[in-house]
Amino acid sequence: MAKLSLEELRSLREKEAERLAKRGIHGKDVHVVVCMGTCGIQAGAKVTLNSIVDEVEAHGLGNVIVTQAPCQGHCEEEPIVEVHTPQLGSIAYGKVDAKTAKRIVEEHIIGGKVLEDHKIKLEV
């Protein structure tokens, strides 16, 4: 078996580091979390999540990762979506239907503007 040169080893390590970084949730710039507890699903969170995934796909946003979370204890505000971006920090939205989900992608993630009419405060 041929020995790897130091240069080849460095290159391999960099390549692997890049691959592992992609696997990490926090390796992405924008993280969208949809609350998918029973209360969220009953309120339509699956439609909300599908809508966000569709919009992210339609706009070719490779820096966005979409994940799910359990109930956050604010059932009356479901479906709840949290958006984490380097520019705007963490913002939570309540009563997010398919139409609002589309707005979140277009106005918040792409446009960098908070949707004040749906913004809610989640207790930590």
Partner: peptide, 11 residues
């Protein structure tokens, strides 16, 4: 999945 949980691709 490796490229960031692309649910659209999975669907």
């Amino acid at each position: 999945l490796d490229e960031g949980m692309n649910m659209a691709a999975m669907r």
